[in-house]
Amino acid sequence: MGQPMIRAEGLVKEFTRPVRRTGPLAGLRSLVTRERVTTRAVDGVSFTVERGELVGYLGPNGAGKSTTIKMLTGVLVPTSGTVEVDGRVPWKDRTRNARGIGVVFGQRTQLWHDLPLRDSFELVAKLYGLDRPDYERALGRFTELLDLGEFLDTPVRGLSLGQRMRGDLTAAMLYGPPLLYLDEPTVGLDVVAKARIREFVAETNAVDGTTVVLTTHDLVDVERLCRRVLLIDHGEVLYDGDLAALRRRYVPYRDLVVTLAREDDGPLVAPPGTTVVEEPRTARAGTGASDAARVVAFRFDPAQTPTPAVVAAVTAEHEVVDLDVTDPDLEAVIAEIYSSGRVRA
């Protein structure tokens, strides 16, 4: 594989802030005292990202995600530890690093607010040293991919959030950086806009071979795009690896959801290796079952009891009109990991 795209080792970032006082005369008291508190936002994070990977970097609010990204992009200087991006130390070699990365923050645009979108692209092209023919080619390609044509000449402040996001993505990819950081790229977008952004990210990764580091709270983004995820909380890496393995390891169950033919509410017989989980559910449309039909789930560990065996046992015991096998959604998996605080895979 050669040199990895990103190599972080024992990355630590501490912040020191003055203590804010409350209570009577707080203002005056903070004038004369000088109390400071140090917090560790990132506490010894290590990982590597190979070229061409698309990695989801996940964690709850305040977990240290943004701080890590800021160290990778050269915005923040690490307190200790090493970081190399494409063979460079981002904060030391900031300018060259900046030419090799694209960064998109969902919460904050990097476009020129008062100028037409097209002007922002031209400025980016000039600042990154993209020559005219390349610029025209790139703009043509992204205009087509992201359907920018309609609002290229609209001032950025007049764009909808989805349009702005597409503009920001274009500005970040115009100069063809081999590495793209996306921080909450779909936050606040509607379903259609989200899908379009995901499609673009997938294509950028597949066609251009752009390495992508994606931070998001939207787990659909992760399921659609990432094969590998990094989970971080309290500044530490909790899990680094395959998305499927993550599911298997942390929530080793599967649900067989059945809609019963009769609305009897007596106790159900659970076949060996399964437990009955009764949560309010409604029957799926098109099954002919009434809205009041009883829907229950049989939970089992597929490693212990094969799925066909469970299906056979349940249908032998009960008369069912519909059945469905579901994996727990990623949200539940992640919630489980955060709440148990399990360290390192």
């Binding site: 990977e53 698309l54 997938a202 990764n205 597949a206 066609v207 071979g209 752009t210 094969r227």
Partner: peptide, 10 residues
Amino acid sequence: MADEAGEAVG
């Protein structure tokens, strides 16, 4: 780096 692109993601 471009030639490594295809194999990375499915």
